[in-house]
Design a protein around this nucleic acid. Structure first.
Lengths: 221, 221
DNA sequence: CTCCAATCTTGTCGCTGTAAAGATTGCTCC
DNA sequence: GGAGCAATCTTTACAGCGACAAGATTGGAG
């Protein structure tokens, strides 16, 4: 174990995920990470400045990974991918949404976070290419960007809420497949939003001409 | 500041909320609470055993309060009440859903948590008395308890997800009224679930006779 | 009035994060 | 190839933390 470890930074980030998954983020300790990496207790500080710095890098990496896994697929599949990410990369997920743990204004982190948020809203806005009947659909048909954001935030909320509730053990069906349950919950999202009486501010937002690439409205039911 | 403080336990619980709202739960310190209460550093331990014990009592109190604020009102209003609770009693809310911070098997806490969960599911099951057209409705019309649980979990998820995302600053519209935004998101929940093709296991769950107290199905759209 | 149990204090221990200063190494430039 | 330099890691030190043990103080029951 020489002075130059090779890629201590990377090793520490992986040890972070490991440690959090084992003992929770509250019990995370820099010195424990150093021990796991076989390095002196002050070595981690050199790479990340302080504990918040470590978690900043950890969260930023998480946002990058999330943005990547969110790319492609329908709106519904994006929700599924969101939940899958939360359950698979549990440690990253838990840190990402606890901004009191890291430097929330770090440029790299802000950029990564914006990237994944963009994926979320983009899908809500540009609609759902291939899953007519999936349960989650976009509001792009009326070209209303505000509705798209509402749709995106609703989908984000239900996916995020399910993931956190599941992870915290709040749901009773612990033996069930969480992904299947998540799909069932997504079905509860609006499928026929044309009966939503929109508020006046929504309407004057733009002309209501139907979208040319409207292809996800199926006449069933 | 005599030996018998009066109601140190209560004072400490209130100081806990204060400290968490100021510096986040990660920075919470028993010794700081003692300082706030004007008491020696070991006094809190006597009342709660350890830090996890303090947070156990704190979370249990939170679940009690939540159950209380969830009582009464429509299914939609319950969602609103949930969000309002999360934003108002932020410290309690943050601790409640971090079971790694407290003794999750504590009897008092388990009871309190069950009480609020019961309120959630009950409303989903027994339906929505007064808000036909509110956007969230129960599935009780087909007497299917599984659907009711799905409905309840979907509502819980979207409310919980919105609350946590809002609190973590994930949404861009920080200036907007969060309660109004929450209402808008709840509108995205299913209003016409009769077009949901239910799976076979759902169907054989019981006879499909319509509920006698069916009163929230409006024929619009 | 006495005694006891509840309450709070004091002192101590090992652990933590952070900072400062020193040791070792690899790389660059001459 | 050798000097110097910057990056990397170690060592040492310190204050704050949670937890424990032992002692001081108090209110109330008998």
């Amino acid at each position: 174990m020489a002075y130059h470890h090779g890629d201590l930074r990377r090793v520490l980030l992986e040890a972070t995920a490991e440690a959090i998954e084992e003992n929770g983020v509250a019990a995370l300790s820099m010195r424990d990470l150093a021990r796991r990496a076989g390095v002196s207790h002050a070595a981690p500080t050199h790479h990340f400045g302080d504990k918040a710095g470590l978690l900043t890098a950890f969260a930023a990496e998480g946002y990058e990974q999330l943005a990547q896994e969110l790319a492609g697929g329908s709106f519904l599949e994006m929700g599924v991918a969101y939940v899958r990410f939360a359950l698979t990369r549990r440690a990253q997920f838990e840190v990402m949404y606890r901004p009191d743990l890291y430097h929330a204004d770090d440029p790299a982190l802000v950029a990564a976070r914006a990237k994944s948020a963009e994926a979320l809203y983009d899908r809500a806005e540009h609609g759902n290419q291939k899953s007519a009947g999936d349960g989650i659909q976009s509001d792009a048909r009326n070209g209303n960007q505000k509705d798209a954001r509402i749709t995106g935030q609703a989908g984000w909320s239900i996916a995020h809420g399910f993931a956190t509730l599941w992870l915290s053990g709040a749901f009773p069906d612990r033996d069930q497949d969480p992904i299947a349950l998540a799909r069932a919950l997504f079905q509860e999202l609006n499928r026929a939003p044309e009966d939503l009486n929109r508020t006046p501010e929504d309407v004057d937002r733009g002309p209501e001409e139907p979208d040319p690439d409207e292809l996800d409205r199926d006449p069933e039911a």
